[in-house]
Every structure is written in structure tokens, then in C-alpha cells.
Simulated assay, not measured.
Amino acid sequence: MAESDKKFAGSIPKFYDTLMVPLIFQGYADDLAELVAASSPRSVLETAAGSGVVTRALAPRLGPDARYVVTDLNQPMLDYAAARQGSDGRIEWRWADALDLPFEDASFDVVCCQFGAMFFPDRVAGYAEARRVLRPGGRFVFSVWDRIEENAFADDVTNAVAALFPDDPPKFLARTPHGYHDVAQIRDDLKRAGFLDIEIETREKVSRAPSAREVATAYCQGTPLRNEIEARDARLLELATDRATAAIASRCGEGPVAGKIQAHVIVAAG
């Protein structure tokens, strides 16, 4: 993973939350919130919370006395999430590294993480930390994207932007968000971290947007793909967005667009 893959700063958090969240994240956030809330946990830790889409979906489902600690490694994203959430005395916002959690052993009933594990430099270590802070019988609930070929818009954008930079194509989307999709590998990593009971379900959904342009803007300007484009030539950001728009429109047509998205949803315990 390149260092720029972890940089969600500047205008990226706003673009990410206003465009990417409704495009691909909201449906899976609702799924994750339902899974977490099913056991009526009294204490929940969320890692890699991003702009807070899971937080907004889960908080209303938790009891009035629940403790909910929301963390992220990227302070600008955490600040954005906290401001967007508003006042809720049950929620504690903390900067934290998922690989080195600042919490005591057996502190939480559930640890959850939506689309963050792909960014862990050492996933076994990250999973072991989740297990360490879980109480006996606790659950680790998280999700990761399936391979990029199963996610139409991400694939379209990657191919379009690659054609603009043929000698050094930006590979953020394929390399990181969609780079950790092997179910056997995920299961093995969890077992190495000490989890014994592992359930993995692959869930397909449909991503929709009012236009191809909105999708292209979301990916090219609301993710670290923007960092890769600007590192090559900042003047070409709009052209890259134009090329991605054209690629999506050529497949989906003018007007509202739709594309397949697919992810793995995992519940681990033991």
C-alpha cells in the first residue's frame, strides 16, 4: 500500500461523505449496523470509522446506556464524522490506530469496522487487537470489498484513468480498497489472530447515481485516487474525471446510472 492511500485530507472527506457514501457505502453500513445491534451490545468499538456512515446508522440502534467509542487513524475524517454526527453523549470520539488500540483487554462486546481492514499494514495484528479488546463471547463484525472486477464503477474508473497515464497508471482502487478480497486468506488471517468461529457472507448490491459525472467525481476527487492523479499531474484532475465520466456513460448511458457492487461481510468470534 502506498503512503498516499491513507491520506484522506483537504476536500476529500467532504467529497467522500457526500458522494461516495450514498454511492457505495450506505447500504453496507445499514447491514453492519443491523448485525452489530442484533446482540444488544452495551459497549461497541468502531475502528477506521471514516466519515461516520456506520456511526450514523448504528447509534440509533443502540440502547440509551450503551458506550460507543468511534475511532479512526485519520484525524480530518474523524473530525468530519464527529461534526456530522452532532451531540450524542453515548459516543466518544478517539484518534486510534487499529493495530495498537489504546484500550484495556476485554473492554467491548463488539468491535466493528466497515471497509477498513484493507488499509491495515498488518491485518493479523489488527485482528488480534480486535480480539484482545473483546470480552468473552464478543464479536468482531467487519466488511471488505470483493475484487474490483465485481465492482463495476470502480473498475470503469480505474481503467479510464489508467489510459490517461499509460506509463504509470494509478492503481489505488485495485491495490487497496479491492486488494484484499480472497475469502480463504481472510479466514486464515482471522484464525492466525485467534478467532475460531468465522462466518463470511458475500453480498451483492446495486450502486446508483443521478449521473455518470457524479460517480466519476466521487471516485476521482473523493478518494485517495485523487492523490495519485495529482502526484502525476495536478492539471489533469478534471480531464481524468472527464475520462471516467465518459467510460461510465458509454456502459450505462445518459441520465441515472447503476452498477454492481460486491463485498464480503464477516462476523468472527472465539
Rank of each mutant, 00 (worst) to 15 (best):
R135D: 01
L62D: 03
P121Q: 05
L99W: 09
D105G: 10
A128P: 10
A66P: 01
F119D: 05
V124E: 04
V110W: 01
C113T: 12
P64R: 11
F119K: 12
A130F: 04
Q114E: 00
Q75R: 15
A106Q: 13
S107L: 03
V144S: 14
R139W: 01
F108H: 06
T71R: 09
R132N: 02
G86I: 02
Y68H: 06
G137E: 02
L78M: 00
A106G: 12
A128R: 15
A98M: 04
C113D: 11
D97W: 06
Q75A: 15
A117G: 13
Y127G: 15
P102F: 11
R132K: 08
R67M: 08
P102D: 04
F140Q: 00
G126P: 03
V111W: 06
D72K: 12
L134R: 05
P76K: 11
A83L: 13
F119N: 07
V69Y: 02
A81Q: 08
L73C: 10
Q75D: 08
D79G: 11
D79Q: 09
P60G: 09
R131D: 01
L73Q: 10
R139Y: 01
V144Y: 09
D72I: 09
E104T: 13
R123Y: 04
A81I: 08
F108S: 05
D105H: 13
G126D: 00
S87C: 08
